[in-house]
Design a protein around this nucleic acid. Structure first.
Lengths: 203, 203
DNA sequence: GGTAAGCTGACTCGTAGAGTCAACTTTCGA
DNA sequence: TCGAAAGTTGACTCTACGAGTCAGCTTACC
């Protein structure tokens, strides 16, 4: 299993209350980030954890530290699972369909994914690394797809990237559509970027 | 444009300097709104007009008043021209293509259009009216297009609306793409929403 | 029970632009 | 020409929000 975190340097032992608080903050953060994205006020995380905001600073150094302590659970594991699974799909057309559908599903369900993709915290190496891995997956996918003629020949990796980023912006700044509307629009997108080869029975 | 005639109460006549300033502010506002959208700082408009910010408040009452004094030139005329021209196109497929292309062109060239579509100033009756007219044009277009089978049967007016609004969000909050990339993506969009069975007479 | 680790309430800070107003300047008609 | 109303403006306040800080108190641990 791929992770973004390196080895955590073994720290001097924390006092029991500090350890307990760290754990409470972590799980409050996971909940808050999943529900409201990475930009949720730290006050809110603190309240959910039953500690004061200052304790978050004591334990995690600030928002970026906190994000990095939980990003694996909140974003990276699911995102990488999608990417990894994409690579196992033989048929390139299906691979595109799966990838775009799964990414858009993730974007809809996990606002935090959009914050990562939009690089809201560009100072976090970990978050940037997640982006980089995502971009690579994009490039790889588009290269394979174009080679096999499944996508329109003029479709670029930049186009796929823009598709995903624009969706992130729409979800972050707009009103979230009903799920079935959203999914139907995913279908339009897919049809718009596919090559016009296969003559019979769409899909 | 309708005006309530006769009901100009006390002070029809401005002093010469005030009239001059009003004109300078108006043209500075047109330039600024066209270049930077309706949310440009008033300070900037004032500077371009060679007056102080307070003078804008004296003459126009604030941002909304200023916007309403120039929205015709900045947004409404072009937008309505697109809508009117759309209605003159016989072929429904061409009508869709023209409309979406022209609206997206306008969104790209005039950031202010996006501020109107996103209802950034919902207290302005004039701006809301422009939105309403746009929405009606959308509905009308989708109704005609679906009837003739030019669009996928499941495509709704809400889908078209979402398409336009999401593009507005992307342009407002994201980095503006190169023009040729943008236009190519307009093409994908159009292909994604068109019906798959060619409607009768080919094109 | 000494003490260092840890916690927190209350604070400052930063941002960024809207909107206000007392004091000054300009216009204009008599 | 002059007085007074109209108009302008620099400098101010206000708002909103949350990040980040720290002195002084509390707690865990030996």
């Amino acid at each position: 299993m791929r992770t973004v975190s390196g080895a955590v340097p073994s720290r001097p032992r924390l006092r029991a209350d500090a350890r307990r608080n760290s754990e409470q903050i972590r799980s409050a953060a996971i909940g808050a980030f999943q529900g409201r994205g990475l930009t949720v006020p730290l006050e809110e995380v603190a309240e959910a954890a039953g500690v004061s905001k200052a304790t978050i600073f004591n334990r995690f150094g600030g928002r970026v530290g906190l994000i990095e302590a939980v990003i694996e659970e909140v974003v990276a594991s699911e995102l990488f699972a999608v990417i990894d699974h994409t690579r196992t799909i033989e048929d390139v057309g299906e691979r595109i369909t799966y990838y775009l559908t799964a990414i858009r599903d993730l974007q809809y369900r996990q606002p935090a994914v959009n914050d990562v993709l939009l690089q809201v915290y560009p100072h976090s190496r970990q978050l940037m690394e997640i982006c980089r891995v995502g971009s690579e997956a994009n490039d790889e996918l588009v290269a394979a797809a174009r080679e096999s003629g499944v996508l329109r020949p003029e479709f670029t990796a930049g186009d796929l990237h823009a598709l995903v980023v624009e969706n992130a912006l729409a979800l972050k700044h707009g009103t979230r559509p009903a799920r079935d509307d959203y999914d139907r629009r995913t279908g339009y997108l897919l049809d718009g970027i596919r090559g016009h080869r296969p003559p019979a029975g769409n899909r």
